[in-house]
Nucleic acid binder design. Structure first.
Lengths: 361, 361
DNA sequence: TTGAAAGCGCTAACAA
DNA sequence: TTGTTAGCGCTTTCAA
């Protein structure tokens, strides 16, 4: 006779009730553990008779069998764990990327481990190490510095990874980001088209690809500019933050450079710049027009609402996740390093208007 | 003779170079694997001679040993994995809680798995199941519904968990949230003190503790109110969103109820309500005063800046994580269900002002 | 198509 | 203080 007494003994606090294991399922289905394993695994099911598959599946269902991921991972050396490394989870920019990635990865059966480095440069390393210890199958990295020793190291070790939003100088991984050049070109053309001749770029930090690319794009957009009488300055700020934007704009206002249009490195820099302008009695958009980058939530609700460049962030996360999945499946198409640039969109709102020539700050 | 040839054979794409295992470290240090294990583990180090500990540690360091978490987890039945379940990672409310929790848990050696349900009611279940399969040690849950079958189920199974921000009717876990009652009382007193007699509460959904508690607190604050001539209405909205706030306010404006002060269930409802007021030609704060709840980023930059109740969200995440750690360590003090209510603060800004009696909408 | 058995890397109980 | 050994639960090779 078959034993089917379910022990529900109460145990010391947080541990679980005795867990059903594969051997239990096998016994209940009248087969051996190996067969049960094959029956339950989609890749090996075809080696098992239809009837056995059904019996095992039903037994598993009835007993509430949940495979032990440790045992499986130990045996297969795969974890179905993916790390997503972001610099600041509090920034909607990254939480949107994260959400996109999480959707795709979860659907594909992976578990997403969050690693928020809180902009701490030492952060990523230890987190990534501990994930590697868990046998993480791969990473989506949104913290890449332009010259990043951690990434070089991961590259050497052959870790599978995809870069999102921020690119890096070296490394053989796929990169998924927004089309920074196009976005900046749109902003520049928009301002030039409104009659602004003297432009200022409040650039983000140059150790990040986003800061570099946008600054470079700003300069090349001006070179390509066909309208006459252009003049431009670039001021590099120390971070993609409101404080850095405030300081940068304050410094420029104290100097000799004149401008009536400002292309900020991102929305936060733009907001800080706006504060600095206001503090100096310069009105936006009457005296100075200003554009941001990223189209963060709520910037459309400010007064005036911010003209900015929208990036498809959730899509970026999804794409990055798909690239990673392709990598993990060893698809040859992605073994070469490749970049995917997502299309961006200029959101024209209230911080830009036609230039009135008398008013160059 | 000892074999010490390190195979660095090149392998198919994403797999790693041959990993150093404990046996390798033991061999290099001239001890047996068991001893090496003890030497490396802080809890068992005291059973090993100082000299051995040093030798093993150095060997581990030199070889770049990283323990295999699967093997360890399989053996110890602990994973050092904690799941954090949030309804919407895009909402700063939850990303701040997440960050706080992540800091504490990571420091304590745990790995944080993110589960973003994207407000999908079916979300939590499968995610939690898969984490349980990985042997997750515990959960921080910020998605609790007031009557939540998933949580009842987890409770039955003796899973260790802590509820953050949202409470539930049943369940024996610790809860960490803001002091909702105090926050609403502050808002009500603030409005009453400004001379507003007729108040409206745009309540959040009542299947969430935050919606319920705030509505209840609103009513009890009015009952406790000593000022004469009070009058109040409660309108329940369907969600904590701008759209729900807009619809709720629009409906009230179309009805017979009059008010000059509004206590919104949270900031998003407040923003939606603001839009509805504006659409109806009602000015804020001149005609109607309005308070929010949560003090989300940027609400201080709106025009007018939102008067709202600030919650210490990062602290909430940290506290929740600490409660969970205590639970996992089996500390008796927390075995009884207990609530921690964090102090809140009223941020008086531009959406509230003294009532001018002629102007009750 | 199924059974038997080995072994992934680690920890812990037992022995010395 | 250290060595030895068994075994966590699963997958997979080999044999039947």
């Amino acid at each position: 006779m078959q034993q089917s007494i379910v022990e529900t003994r109460s145990v010391a606090y947080p541990s679980l009730v005795e867990r059903v294991k594969l051997a239990d399922v096998a016994r209940a289905a009248g087969v051996h553990a190996g067969t049960a394993s094959r029956a339950l695994n989609p890749n090996t099911q075809r080696h098992v008779s239809r009837d056995t598959v059904r019996r095992v599946a039903r037994a598993a269902e009835r007993l509430g069998y949940v495979p032990n991921a440790h045992a499986r991972g130990l045996r297969t050396a795969r974890s179905y764990l993916v790390g997503v490394v972001v610099p600041d989870i509090t920034n909607p920019l990254f939480s949107l990327i994260l959400r996109g990635a999480e959707q795709v990865l979860t659907t594909a059966g992976y578990t997403v481990v969050l690693s928020d480095t809180n902009n701490d440069i030492r952060g990523p390393r230890s987190q990534v190490e501990s994930l590697l210890a868990r046998g993480a199958d791969g990473f989506i990295i949104a913290t890449a510095e332009w010259d990043d020793p951690l990434l070089e190291d991961l590259d050497d070790r052959g870790v599978a990874a995809v870069l999102a939003n921020r690119n890096t100088r070296r490394g053989r991984w796929p990169y998924v980001g927004g089309d920074e050049r196009a976005g900046i070109a749109m902003a520049v053309q928009h301002l030039r088209g409104l009659g602004h001749r003297r432009l200022l770029h409040l650039a983000g930090p140059q150790h990040l690809s986003t800061g570099r690319d946008r600054a470079e794009a700003f300069e090349s957009a001006l070179r390509a500019d066909s309208l006459p009488g252009g003049d431009a300055h670039v001021r590099v700020t120390g971070a993609f933050t409101e404080a850095a934007g405030f300081d940068g704009m304050t410094a420029v206002l104290a100097g000799p450079d004149r401008f009536s249009g400002v292309v900020a490195g991102n929305d936060l820099i733009a907001l800080g710049a706006l504060d600095a302008l206001r503090a100096a009695g310069v009105r936006c958009p009457e005296d100075v027009s200003l554009t941001g980058f990223n189209d963060m939530p709520f910037v459309d609700r400010l007064t005036p609402p911010l003209t900015t460049v929208r990036l498809p962030l959730e899509e970026m996360g999804r794409m990055a996740a798909n690239e990673l999945l392709a990598l993990l499946r060893g698809q040859p198409s992605v073994r070469a390093r490749r970049s995917t640039l997502l299309p961006v969109e200029l959101m024209v709102r209230g911080t830009t208007q036609r230039h009135e020539p008398s008013r160059t700050t």
